[in-house]
Nucleic acid binder design. Structure first.
Length: 800
RNA sequence: GCGGGUAUGGCGGAAUUGGCAGACGCGCUAGAUUCAGGUUCUAGUGGGGGCAACUUCGUGGAGGUUCAAGUCCUCUUACCCGCACCA
């Protein structure tokens, strides 16, 4: 058979499409499988081979599941709201809607050429009215349940993109979109109270099968810590200075307190503070620093002592000086700490610099030299003295604090609430109306979608306000509650909004009554297997779990967790070993590869490159090897004759079926392909195979190289589509030859390989091994002191 | 600083979990086919030694456990990823 990949691929893509063989049937009686891949952001650059890798893993699994008789849902869509499109639109003057449509068309064409078995009848586009209507609906439900709030706060702000960013979007102090330095800015911010779900998000991880590093990253991001809240009083006031600590056991070691420069107590007691000017100066200097600068300068501690205001120790009643310092953050705990220099490195550094007393309360180190953070016997600590177990000390102290009414056990999370608004045009409008009389009022559900108005100028305002603010017809409206004049919220939602629930919409993409029919959700959920990038683990993955858990709580979805299993693919690096990027000029366009080598070769190569979860550099010459492999498979179509089993090939086939079947489940695609290459080499050595056997080989290979396999399947008279043919089965007993090769060692050195019957007992194995010429020579004249036999594997003779 | 990971030929990577290290592919060498380039085919291909059968060394480094270690233990080096003044 001539392997004309271009013709073959086009032919079968059309046939599949016409026969709708990848269409998922709701409520089908077959077992269901929902395989999900992260839908792409349709950027102007088009797809690169990294996208192909991201989808190829579950593409193979989904194709295998269909052949195993499952009703498979393997959908695709487009996460199309977002800044790059808007920035491109501003630059070129082309409307984002048009840019998006063009890009989606390009992506669709690229995806189809690779022959992915997506259900194209379920495509979702987050920017479509019928879709974002439900994004807004979920937002309003959260508003209704008190999970949405507005606050004026210091936020992460990107001066280049002119938007507020969430904590997740500004990791490392850089803007996630343009990599500019983030600054802190006081703005009106809409928050989603994700912290209310922190514990559920953490606990839910126990019930799902996620890659260990995925799970761990989420655990760290949520950052649960247990400790205690302690109320210190402010001398001469009724005010309590509340702090959070994970080490309440060290309470007797407190020698000073530190407040974040932004702490509100400072303003409340301004009149009592004698050095207000000095404090103001310090506070202003801090405000100018970026979050990045503030967290990076962790060597040299700075701060100012507050004169005229001091705290009172809740147990000893001693007066304790208070400082302000930017090593304490307003955003974590209570924005104030009790400082125990003897047992905390940061407090120690601060105390040394400012000449503050150090009181040792745990024995074990030299606290004049450095902070001791280890365990040891409690001293200088009243009722804790003599205790040596940290846990006991902590619980004893917490009990005491509770008795005295000055503190209690508490939990803190590093995760912060989700800053949810963006001062941009290309996003879902936030469906809230501001009324002078009624305050913030939800747009009634029946008025959804609140449409994004068409505008000419979608550039953001200089003051960082949304482009929508300039459109009077949009802004001015009537209050849904009182009917009076009101103004619409003009900010839009972040890109992550639409992607937080897209996997639900695939289940019922056209529903106009609800986001998805409950019965259909019950049939398809949870997503059985979700594959995506590591970069989304502390963003999209955590956001979408939050939304899903909320929807579960209000009875809209039937499962507590959206994804039963989550894996991640590794990056494809450029041929130079560097991350693929436009600026490096090392990006590989899948269209070019499909043109030269064909889609099947591209697919096989991408999965053959290496471990699916690891990064691997692109190599065109390696890809030629994959092309050669497929060429040789195509040749077999002419060589296969007769039916039934070729004796010499029986074991190789059973072994390969077993290996490929299990490797796919473990995402070890590289070794699955290697096993098929090995089988092909064995076929060539034998020099003959039957049509039956070729049918088995192409069914095994079909998930990887489906077009070629269909063509071969057809040419040998296979029934129906190869893509729907039954997955080959193996007989365990036939995966091993009746004669096995056993290595024989003398004193751990390999002396020979002998053939013996499978399962030979120790005595048989030994006599066969000793009969081997080389082995006999090696033990001649020596005493065998130990004989080790591992059946079917190895014989080791220890001689003296 | 904390947490996680990786290290195997010239290259990408295998190794059924303690049992023949280097599967499979690339590249390379020699030969065949071809007017030539490409393709295809055959043989070889971890290092050292030997005409050879063979021998010896070999999984970042140093020790250890074991009949047997890429795999387990101790120490150590380099790189990658995530978080980072988280109280």
């Amino acid at each position: 058979m001539r392997y004309d990949f271009a013709a073959i691929e086009k032919k079968w893509q059309e046939k599949w499409d016409k026969a709708r063989i990848f269409h998922a049937e709701d409520h089908d009686t077959r077992k269901k499988f929902y395989g999900l891949v992260e839908f792409p952001y349709p950027s102007g650059a088009g797809m690169h081979v990294g996208h192909i890798k991201a989808y190829s893993g579950l593409e193979v699994v989904s194709r295998k599941r269909r052949m195993e008789g499952y009703n498979v849902l393997f959908p695709i869509g487009f996460d199309a709201y977002g800044l790059p499109t808007e920035n491109y639109a501003i630059k070129t003057g082309i409307h984002p809607r048009q840019v998006t449509d063009t890009n989606i068309a390009k992506f669709t064409q690229q995806l189809r050429r690779v022959g992915f078995s997506f259900d194209w009848e379920r495509v979702v586009d987050t920017t479509e009215e019928g879709y974002y209507r439900w994004t807004q609906w979920i937002f309003l439900k959260m508003f209704e349940k008190g999970l949405v709030f507005r606050d004026t706060a210091l936020v992460n702000y990107c001066p280049s993109c002119k938007v507020v960013l969430s904590n997740e979007d500004s990791q490392g102090g850089k803007c996630d979109i343009c990599k500019s330095d983030i600054v802190q800015k006081s703005k009106d911010v809409w928050y989603l109270r994700i912290t209310a779900y922190a514990d559920k998000l953490l606990k839910g991880l126990d019930d799902v099968d996620y890659l260990p590093n995925v799970k761990m990253q989420q655990v760290n991001w949520i950052g649960k810590s247990t400790g205690a809240f302690v109320n210190f009083s402010l001398a001469g006031t009724t005010e309590k200075l509340r702090i959070y600590t994970t080490r309440p056991d060290t309470l007797f070691g407190v020698t000073f307190m530190v407040m974040a420069p932004e702490h509100p107590v400072l303003d409340r007691y301004r009149d009592r503070i004698q050095n207000a000017a000095a404090l103001d100066e310090y506070r202003e200097a801090c405000a100018k620093k970026t979050e990045f600068e503030r967290t990076q300068m962790n060597k040299d501690k700075t701060g100012v002592k507050i004169e005229g205001l001091c705290a009172v120790h809740p147990i000893t009643g001693k007066e304790i000086p208070i400082y302000i310092s930017d090593y304490v953050m307003m955003g974590y705990g209570t924005g104030a700490i009790m400082a125990v220099p003897a047992h905390d490195e940061r407090d120690f550094a601060f105390a040394k610099k400012f000449g503050i007393d150090i009181i040792e309360v745990i024995k074990g180190g030299n606290v004049e030299e450095q902070a001791y953070t280890g365990d040891g016997e409690m001293i200088n600590s009243d009722f804790l003295n003599g205790l040596t177990d940290k846990k006991t000390s902590i619980t004893t102290m917490i009990k005491k604090l509770e008795e005295l009414g000055v503190g209690e056990a508490g939990v803190q999370y590093k995760m912060k609430d989700w800053a949810f608004n963006r001062q941009r045009y290309w996003g879902e409008p936030i469906p809230i109306v501001h009324c002078e009389k009624c305050g913030m009022v939800a747009v009634p559900y029946e008025e959804l979608p609140l449409r994004l108005p068409a505008v000419e100028n979608f550039a953001p305002g200089e003051g960082g306000e949304s482009p929508l603010a300039k459109i009077e017809s949009f802004v001015n409206c009537k209050c849904p509650k009182c009917g009076g004049d009101a103004k619409r919220e003009t900010d839009t939602m972040p890109q992550w909004a639409g992607s937080s629930w897209y996997f639900l919409r695939y289940i019922d993409p056209l529903n106009a009554e609800c986001l998805a029919d409950y019965e259909k959700l019950k049939y398809w959920l949870p997503v059985d297997w979700y594959n995506g990038g590591m970069e989304h683990v502390t963003r999209h993955l955590i956001y979408s779990r939050f939304w899903h858990k909320f929807l579960y709580d209000i009875g809209v979805v039937p499962t507590a967790e959206p994804y039963a299993k989550r894996t991640a693919q590794g990056l494809i690096l450029g041929p130079d070993g560097q991350k693929m990027s436009k600026s490096r000029g090392n990006v590989v366009d899948p269209n070019d590869v499909v043109d030269t080598f064909g889609a099947d070769t591209l697919r096989v190569y991408i999965l053959f490159m290496g471990d699916y979860a690891s990064a691997a550099p692109w190599s065109e010459s390696s890809m030629r090897g994959c092309k050669r492999f497929l060429d040789r498979v195509a040749q077999l179509a002419e060589r296969a004759t007769g039916t039934g089993v070729t004796k010499e090939l029986e074991t190789p086939f059973h072994r390969t079926i077993k290996k490929v079947s299990s490797d796919i489940e473990e995402m070890k695609f590289n070794t699955a392909i290697a096993a098929m290459m090995t089988l092909l080499n064995e076929i060539d050595e034998v020099g003959h195979l039957t049509v039956t056997e070729l049918g088995t080989l192409v069914r095994l290979l079909s998930p990887f190289a489906p077009h070629l396999c269909e063509e071969v399947w057809e040419s040998i008279g296979g029934e129906g589509f190869c893509s729907l043919a039954a997955w080959p089965e193996f007989d365990e007993a036939k995966t091993v030859l009746s004669t096995v090769e056993v290595a024989v060692q003398v004193c751990g050195k390999l002396k020979g390989v002998v053939a013996m019957p499978k399962g030979a007992d120790k005595d048989t194995a030994l006599s066969i091994a000793k009969a081997d010429e080389r082995v006999a020579a090696a033990i001649a004249g020596k005493t065998v002191v130990k004989e080790i036999v591992v059946p079917d594997k190895i014989v080791n003779l220890v001689v003296r």
